[in-house]
Design a protein around this nucleic acid. Structure first.
Length: 567
RNA sequence: UGGGGCGUAGCCAAGCGGUAAGGCAACGGGUUUUGGUCCCGUCAUUCGAGGGUUCGAAUCCUUCCGCCCCAGCCA
C-alpha cells in the first residue's frame, strides 16, 4: 500500500481513532473460510488489511474462519497460506483458526443461555423459515422461545454430546422476531453437524454460525478494525449485539467496503467452484481464472497485483473494474523486469538468397532496454530464418510498414532485408516462403548511408530455433458482467468465451529458451509477455501468454477495416 | 410495500461550504532498432433529477428517481 497516497474512508476512521486515543495501534485480520482458492477480490482485502497494519505500525492476523466442516479442507488452508505469502505478506506468529476457539464459543453460548438470551429451538428448518416472516412482515416467536434456562442448558448439552440428529435442534439468540432487520430475528448460532472437521475431527458435533463466531474471534484476538464486505452491513447490529451481551472487553469496530468485481470474469467462490468442478477450466490455477494461483501461473507478479489493489481504491459503491487496469499493472511491472527474447508464434520461412548457406554469425542483442544491467546476448543468424507470418503481406494495406514485395525492413539487431520473391503453393496459393536479399553494410541494424526503414521485425535462425507450445489466453467470459447475466437466468456455461484458450504448437523460440525455469517470465519482442508453464517438459516447453504488448497496429488495422466497411 | 447501502467521465476514484485531483481506457502529437517503453497534449461549465438554504453547494436541507444487499441450520 502506498504510504503517502490519498486516503480512503477506512484510513480516515483509523487515523481518527488513533488521534483521539481510542486505540494505540491497529490490529486487523484477513479471515478466509478454507472452502476454495483465493481470488483477486481476496487480494484486495489482503492488501487492505495487511497494508493498513503495516502503514499504522500494527499487525494483521491470518485467521481461518472454519466453522463449517462440510465445506472446508486442508488443501484450501494450504493454498490460502501459499497465496497470501506469495502476495508478499507475513502474518508472523499470528495464525489462527476459529476452530481453536470452539471451547470458548461454547462457554459464551452457555452464558447467553444463562442470561436468557439464547434458547434451543426445535422447529424444523422449514418451520424456522416460516416463523421468520418476510421482508415486509414481522416474524413470529418460536413456540420454544420460552423454554426455561435449565431446559435450554440440558438440551444444549445434549446437542453437544451428540444425542440428537442433525436438524433436530438449534441454538438461537433471543433477540427480536419483529425486527425490521431480518438478521435480528432470533438468528441460529449453533447447529448440529455430524461431520468431521479438518482440524478438530469428530470432537464436536455442534458448530457455531458465522455471525456468532466471527465477532467473538475478532474480540478474542484483540482486533481493532474488522473489515468486511458490504453485504455484512446488515449484520453489524448482530455483531455488536453479541459482544455487548457477552460483556467482552474487546469490541472491534466492523467496517464494510465494496468487494472487487472485474469485468469479463466472475468473482464468487461458488461460481469459480462451478467452473472447476464442471471441467470448464483445468483447475483452480488455470491461467484464465481470476484466482491468485491462476494469475501466478499466468505470469502475474505479486507486485503487479499489489499495485492494482492500490490503484482501484477502497470505497462503498458497487464497482466493476476494467480488466485493462489489471493488464496495465502487469505490463508496467514486466516492462522493467522481463528479459527480451525472440519468439515466433506463426513462423514464415525467409531465405536470404545472397547469404551463404554454410555461414552462421552471432549478433549482439540487448536483454532489456529498460535495464542496462541485464546485459546483452548473442543471437545466431544464418541464411534461412523464420519471421512472423503477420509481418509479411503480399498486398500491404496503407500504413502497413512491415515486409512486402520490394520493401526493405530491419531484422532486429541484424540486417536490413528486401523482399525479392514470394514462393506460393501452386494449388492453394498459400505463401510458403519469402526470398529476400540482405545488405551486408547494415549489420547490427543500421545503414551507414543513413537510410531508414519503417519496420523492424523479430526473427529466428531456422537452424537454431527451438520448438515451443504457446498458450494464448483471452477473457474467460464473452460478456462483461456474467454474474448479472446469470441472475437473469442465463447459465454461466453459456456465457463462457469459447476462444479463451488458444494453443499453438510449432512456435519457435530463440536458442536456450526451452530450458528456462518454470515460472520464468520473458517479453517476446513485439508480441507480449510470456511465462514458462510449470507443466513444461524439457523437450517441449509451454509458454503462457501473460498479456500482449499494446498493439497500435491492430488498432489502426481495425479502424481501417471499420472505415472501409462503412463505405 | 420492511430494513440496510450506494449514485462524481466509458471504468475506478479524490472531494468533507470557497468554485470538479489522480489513474485506466480513448483520442491527437513527439522520441524510438519492439507499431513496446517514455514524453507532451485533449478528454465533467458540472457531480442521478427537481426544489430549498447560502454571497457562494458535488458538499447542508428536502422531495423524487435509479442500482445493490438481506427472508441458509453458508460465509
Amino acid at each position: 500500500m502506498d504510504n503517502s497516497g490519498p486516503s480512503n474512508f477506512i484510513q480516515e476512521i483509523i487515523e481518527q481513532d488513533l488521534r483521539i486515543g481510542k486505540h494505540k495501534s491497529v490490529v486487523t485480520r484477513f479471515p478466509p473460510e478454507p472452502n476454495g482458492y483465493l481470488h483477486i477480490g481476496h487480494a484486495k482485502s489482503i492488501c487492505l488489511n495487511f497494508g493498513l497494519a503495516a502503514k499504522y505500525g500494527g499487525r494483521c492476523h491470518l485467521r481461518f474462519d472454519d466453522t463449517n466442516p462440510r465445506k472446508e479442507s486442508p488443501e484450501f488452508v494450504r493454498s490460502i497460506m501459499e497465496d497470501v505469502r506469495w502476495l508478499g505478506y507475513d502474518w508472523g506468529e499470528h495464525l489462527y483458526y476459529a476452530s481453536d476457539y470452539f471451547p470458548g464459543f461454547y462457554r459464551y453460548a452457555l452464558q447467553l443461555i444463562e442470561q436468557g438470551q439464547a434458547y434451543v429451538c426445535s422447529l424444523t428448518p422449514e418451520e424456522i423459515r416460516r416463523y421468520r416472516g418476510t421482508l415486509t412482515e414481522p416474524g413470529q416467536n418460536s413456540p420454544f422461545r420460552e423454554r426455561s434456562i435449565e431446559e435450554n442448558l440440558e438440551l444444549f448439552q445434549g446437542m453437544k454430546e451428540g444425542r440428537f440428529q442433525e436438524g433436530r435442534h438449534v441454538l438461537r439468540a433471543r433477540i427480536d422476531m419483529s425486527s425490521p432487520n431480518i438478521n435480528m430475528r432470533d438468528p441460529v448460532i449453533y447447529r448440529i453437524l455430524k461431520a468431521d472437521h479438518h482440524r478438530t475431527g469428530d470432537e464436536w458435533c455442534i458448530y457455531p454460525t458465522y455471525d456468532y463466531a466471527h465477532c467473538l474471534s475478532d474480540s478474542l484476538e484483540g482486533i481493532t478494525h474488522s473489515l468486511c464486505s458490504l453485504e455484512f452491513e446488515d449484520h453489524r447490529p448482530l455483531y455488536d449485539w453479541f459482544l455487548k451481551q457477552l460483556g467482552v472487553e474487546c469490541h472491534p469496530q466492523q467496517i464494510e467496503f465494496a468487494r472487487l468485481n472485474l469485468n469479463y470474469t466472475v468473482m464468487s467462490k461458488r461460481k469459480l467452484t462451478q467452473l472447476v468442478q464442471g471441467g470448464f477450466v483445468r483447475g483452480w490455477d488455470d491461467p484464465r481464472m481470476p484466482t491468485i494461483s491462476g494469475l501466478r501461473r499466468r505470469g502475474y507478479t505479486p507486485r503487479s497485483i499489489r499495485r492494482f489493489c492500490d490503484l482501484i481504491g477502497v470505497a462503498k459503491s458497487d464497482n466493476i473494474v476494467d480488466m485493462s487496469l489489471l493488464e496495465y499493472c502487469i505490463r508496467e511491472d514486466l516492462n522493467k523486469l522481463a528479459p527480451r527474447v525472440m519468439g515466433v508464434l506463426s513462423p514464415l520461412r525467409v531465405v536470404i538468397t545472397n547469404y551463404p548457406g554454410d555461414r552462421t554469425e552471432e549478433l549482439e542483442a540487448i536483454n532489456n532496454p529498460e535495464d542496462e544491467s541485464m546485459g546483452t546476448r548473442r543471437l545466431p543468424f544464418s541464411r534461412e530464418l523464420f519471421i512472423e507470418r503477420d509481418d509479411f503481406r503480399e498486398d500491404p494495406p496503407g500504413k502497413y510498414f512491415r515486409l512486402a514485395p520490394g520493401r526493405e525492413v530491419r531484422l532486429r539487431y541484424a540486417y536490413f532485408i528486401t523482399c525479392d520473391r514470394v514462393i506460393k503453393d501452386q494449388d492453394t496459393g498459400e505463401i510458403l516462403e519469402v526470398h529476400c536479399s540482405y545488405d551486408p553494410q547494415t549489420r547490427g541494424g543500421n545503414a551507414p548511408d543513413g537510410r531508414r526503414v519503417k519496420g523492424t521485425l523479430h526473427w529466428i535462425s531456422a537452424r537454431h530455433a527451438e520448438k515451443a507450445r504457446v498458450c494464448i489466453y483471452d477473457r474467460l467470459f464473452s460478456r462483461p458482467n456474467p454474474a448479472q447475466d446469470e441472475k437473469k437466468g442465463l447459465s454461466l456455461q453459456d456465457l463462457l468465451n469459447p476462444q479463451s484458450l488458444q494453443v499453438t504448437d510449432n512456435c519457435l523460440v530463440e536458442p536456450g529458451l526451452s530450458s528456462a525455469r518454470p515460472g520464468e517470465r520473458f517479453q517476446f519482442e513485439r508480441i507480449g509477455y510470456f511465462c514458462l508453464d510449470p507443466e513444461s517438459q524439457p523437450d517441449r516447453p509451454v509458454f503462457n501468454r501473460t498479456v500482449s504488448l499494446k498493439d497500435t497496429w491492430a488498432k489502426i488495422e481495425k479502424k481501417m477495416s471499420n472505415e472501409s466497411g462503412k463505405k
